[in-house]
Amino acid sequence: MQTKIQKSASMGLGAVFGFLLVLVGATTFDIQAAMFLFEDFQLPIVLAVAMMTGVVGVWMIKRMKASSIIVQQQIEFMKIPFSRNLLLGSVFFGTGWALTASCPGTAVAMLGEGKLIGVPVVAGILAGTWLFGFYSKQKQAGLK
């Protein structure tokens, strides 16, 4: 199922996304700080416009009952179910966002720009992901 075309398409879309993240200033530390300190509203505008555009686009896909182009299959519009973990996870994530002025996507895009700040951040995210894997495995084992 995972053809080379699918992989390259994913990578191509990722490259465009990386380009756009840099274009709108999501990888610029001062613009991140300005957003959280309410000094300028560039990133909140980007987010709001992107969300509205996404809503319209998804509505159109659903209306056309389109199937995905590369693998002809029904498009999955998966929503993440609510759980209490989500709230605690948000607190961790938000704190990390403030400390690093990056998120899992922008930290990788920064590497392409030559911003070495991304290196410890990406390493940390990998470590955090790994830790969570072990934590949830342990929790599961404890329940059994």
Binding site: S83, N85, S90, G96, V121, V122, G124, I125
Partner: peptide
Amino acid sequence: LFIGGILLGFGARMAGGCTT
């Protein structure tokens, strides 16, 4: 920055996704 990254990674998995 590394600790911030750990929080991002742990938090993202716990919350089921990141900003994207």
